[in-house]
Design a protein around this nucleic acid. Sequence first.
DNA 1: ATCAGTCTAGACCGCATAGTCTACAAAAAT
DNA 2: ATTTTTGTAGACTATGCGGTCTAGACTGAT
Lengths: 191, 191
Amino acid sequence: MGRPIFEHASFLEAAHALAAEHGPGAVTVDSVAQRLKAPKGSFYHRFRSRDELLGQVWLNMVLAYQEGFVAAIDAGDGLAAALHTPRWARSHPDDARLLLLYSRHDFVHGDWPADLKRGVRDQAERFEECLARFARTAFGRAGSPQLRRATFVLAEVPIAAVKGHLERRETPPPIVDDLITETYHAIVGRR
Amino acid sequence: MGRPIFEHASFLEAAHALAAEHGPGAVTVDSVAQRLKAPKGSFYHRFRSRDELLGQVWLNMVLAYQEGFVAAIDAGDGLAAALHTPRWARSHPDDARLLLLYSRHDFVHGDWPADLKRGVRDQAERFEECLARFARTAFGRAGSPQLRRATFVLAEVPIAAVKGHLERRETPPPIVDDLITETYHAIVGRR
DNA sequence: ATCAGTCTAGACCGCATAGTCTACAAAAAT
DNA sequence: ATTTTTGTAGACTATGCGGTCTAGACTGAT
């Protein structure tokens, strides 16, 4: 076998692992390279910057998270969408920690690389579209107060209910689902 | 007038202002000193380290926030305690941003200075005591599930409901209080 | 008046980190 | 066989930061 080749994906994996272990702040170009035993030059051959690396890591996670959420909304099941967060947190504890405990800005400080900006915008749009669709079916229309309610019940509450457990590195207990469900019924009614 | 004197409190104020404007990460010893036109030496004359400065800033804010919360619990008014967060966010938008949008660890990385550790612990204890007291009056006892419910309804939900607005630098609209109130009644019942 | 203690003043040091540069080795194209 | 391309290799640079150090000015006690 000839000289080693360091793949694009390997850098993403290494960065993801480091972030999961010590937080996104600990993901430095050197630490990533060191973990792969790759030289710095190889890194900068694949990535324009550290921001590009961490932006990709973040975007990948968000997209994976969003999939189940969008599917639940597509199926017209608002409660399932609300419960997607604790369920996903149980099956993907590392990603959940990174996504819910840190913010986008802990991954990429300042401006995002141009090509990723696009992906981030699309992702946000798709999410807002889900909220609007839910608001229409649950509340009849998608005006500002209805959207506000939708955000509360589908995003804010589920995330808040799960956060504390993620901080303590626990898998969210069943009571979390109860709390989310009770809140859901209180806010949107039973239908 | 003789040479200038740079007070302890001035450093705290400058640090607080900088944090409010650009986030706690932007509070560097140099930036604080520069804002006061004080030399670095004066800073280190008053503070052992950057961590001590930011720890004090954080602790002051938490204590001020907690006051109203504890008062509501003392008065036996759980709903008022839940609504304290949006109300306080309206009257202290800067502090609310710093406290709710960032974590303790964004102020002091790693270990806390010994003397502050004490304050932080006391603060956490006082808060948990409030939760326990509320759990007893609202749910009859303060077992693990009751405490979990108390945390949800008094802390997690109110903070989550307010966060998005703080991010956008809006004052939380009245609907936030509605959502918190509806959730409160759903979780603890009406009494 | 003198001395000790307090505080300003800012140059300086050490370290971590993002990013560059040049050299070279292997593979692919011609 | 020769040239070009691709990617490894890692020393080096630039920058920003927390923290130290020494010099000296002001203040209050004696």
